[in-house]
Design a protein around this nucleic acid. Sequence first.
DNA 1: AAACTGAACATTTTGTTGATTGTTCAACAT
DNA 2: ATGTTGAACAATCAACAAAATGTTCAGTTT
Lengths: 195, 195
Amino acid sequence: MDEKAETRDRILEAAGRRFEHYGYSKTTMSEIASDLKMSTGNLYRFYPSKLDIAEAHARAHECDEDEMMEAVVASGGSAGVRLREFHRVILEHTFKLIDESKKIFELAQAISRERPAYANRRLAIERVYLVRMLEDGMAEGLFEPHDNLDELAEMIQCATMKFRYPQLYNCFRIDMLRRELEGTMDLIYKGLLKR
Amino acid sequence: MDEKAETRDRILEAAGRRFEHYGYSKTTMSEIASDLKMSTGNLYRFYPSKLDIAEAHARAHECDEDEMMEAVVASGGSAGVRLREFHRVILEHTFKLIDESKKIFELAQAISRERPAYANRRLAIERVYLVRMLEDGMAEGLFEPHDNLDELAEMIQCATMKFRYPQLYNCFRIDMLRRELEGTMDLIYKGLLKR
DNA sequence: AAACTGAACATTTTGTTGATTGTTCAACAT
DNA sequence: ATGTTGAACAATCAACAAAATGTTCAGTTT
C-alpha cells in the first residue's frame, strides 16, 4: 500500500504545477488527470475533491511559513522585539503574495473561503509561536504574567487582523500598513509590559 | 435660491423612504422622480448621481450615530470605562444593522464600497470622540501622556477593525465577537495606562 | 478482488439576449 | 434666461441557454 501514497504525491505535484502556473480556478481535474495519463475518475480514489487537493498542496507548503515563523521566534533579542518582528514578517509575506503571486493568493483565498476550518487551524498554529514568545517575555520579566496564554494570543490576533487580511479593506498601500502596524504593535506591546 | 434647497430636501426625503423600504439597489431614479412628480432628468439638476443622493441621506442620518457616540463619551465614569463602552456600542450597532435592517446595511455597504473617502471621513469623526476620551483619561491621570492623540486614536481603530466590519470576516456570531472585543479592549486599555 | 476507465450526471461558469436603469442633452415651457 | 422635460444613449442587470467542469459509478482491465 505504498503505491497509493506515491500516486497521491504525484497527483499533488501535477496539481501544484498547474495551480502555481494557472491558478486554482483555471486548472481542471481533467488537466491534472491527463498530465498523469490517468482518468479523472481515478483522481477521486486518491482525493475526495479538487478542494482537498488544494488543501493538501497548502499543507505541503505550510512548512515554509512555519520555518519563517520559527526563524523569528528562535532568533535572538527580547520577546518584545521578536513579537514585533513576527508581525512585520507576516505582513510582508502576505503582501508579497497579493502583489507578486496572484496565483497562489487565489489558491489561499479559495481555501480560506471554502474551508474556514483550515484557516482557523492555521491561526491556531500561529498562536503556538505567539504563546512561546509570550512565555519568553514573561520569563524575561518583561511581560506581565498571565494564566491563559492562548487566549491572550487570540486577542493579539484580533487586534492585528487588519494586517493579516489587508485585501479585505481594499488597502494595498504597504507603506501605510507598515506604519499602522508599528503603531498598533506599540499599543499591544505596552499592554503586555510588566507594571 | 431657497427653492433649490427645498427641492433637494424633498428629493432626499422621497429617496430616503424608498431606500429604507426597498434598499438602495431596488429603488430607481425614475421611482424617486415619479414620487415627486418630476422627470428623472430633473433629479440631476439637484444631485450629480444616485450615489450622491445616498451619501446625502447617510449624512442626514449621521447625527443619530453621532448622538450615540456623544452619549457614551459624555456619560459619567472614567475614560477607561467609556472607551470600552464606546466600542461595545459600535459593535452592537453595526451588528444590529446587519441583522435587522438589511436595507440600511446595503446602503451603508454601497457607500463605503463606492465612496471610500466617505468611510474615511466617518472614521475621522469617530476619532474626534476617541481623542476626547483619551484627553480625559490623561487629565484623570489614568492614561500615559501622548503628544499625537489623533494618531493614537488611529491605532486604536486599527486594532478594533475586526469589530467595526465583522461582515468582512464572515463572523456573524455576536457572542464570540463580544468576548473577543472584551479581550482586545483589555489589551488596549493596559497599553494606555500610566506606568 | 482491486485498480482503473470514461461515459453519465449534476453543478458551476460562461456567453448571449433583452430589459432595466443611470445619465445626458437637445428641445420645450415658463 | 431659467427651469423642466422626456427621448436617446450607455452601462448594468436578469434570465436563459450553452458550454465547461467537478463528481459519480457501472462496467472493464489487471
